[in-house]
Amino acid sequence: MMLQSLLGVWMCGVILAAFLWLPPAKGFQYPEAARIIVFHVPNAMAAVLAFLVSTVYAIKHLRGRNPADDAKSAASAQLGLLFALLAAVTGAVFAKIQWGSAWNWDPRQTTILILLLIYAAYFALRSSVEGSDRRAALSSAYAIIAFVTVPFLVFVVPRMTSSLHPSDTLTSRGGLGTQYRIVLFSAMAGFAGLYLWMFRLSVALAEIRNGKKGV
């Protein structure tokens, strides 16, 4: 409860800082609009974190056959889908403002679209398999197979066409102003916390549901 309130206060701080404290980013076409980065980048990172956790639990499930691991894998995949969708939408909004069109098959846009398709397919698979053991085994296997193709998306596809996304802003010195750096990293921490909190909630919910069914 305490942590949860802290998370709420923290996220309020991030939102206030993003809209009121941050100066407009000069390098962009519409400096005011660049504030969306503070939400776009952490969303994408939370999605990656959620998909990673989902795959780890899928592997764990295939090794140990514990239904709880499968429930965790599914819960995390669901949150990943949500964060990925938000990252795609905020990205499309900013792309429209900065590059002139909302969707232009930038490699990152391609990658996130494929990720959305993978996990949408994952849930389509889950809903069409009967029997919880079989569903768990098949969807874990699919999640792992899908995950091994992600490196191809991340490393191979971008080399085929050029990207409009900057690649080294976060790691290079002088890529970001100090204020942007502070707010962006706080937002990342906030979104990671948000993900953890939502993950625990949906795992608890799944446990209650499974308990009711007597599985």
């Binding site: 494929i114 398709l117 069409s128 098949l138």
Partner: peptide, 21 residues
């Protein structure tokens, strides 16, 4: 699974996307 025909393309496409590109 149920609905095998539709599901087959839906599950395969995202996995095959890097290969197709």
């Amino acid at each position: 699974a149920n609905a095998k025909g539709a599901l087959f393309a839906v599950l395969s496409f995202p996995i095959l996307a890097p290969l197709l590109v």
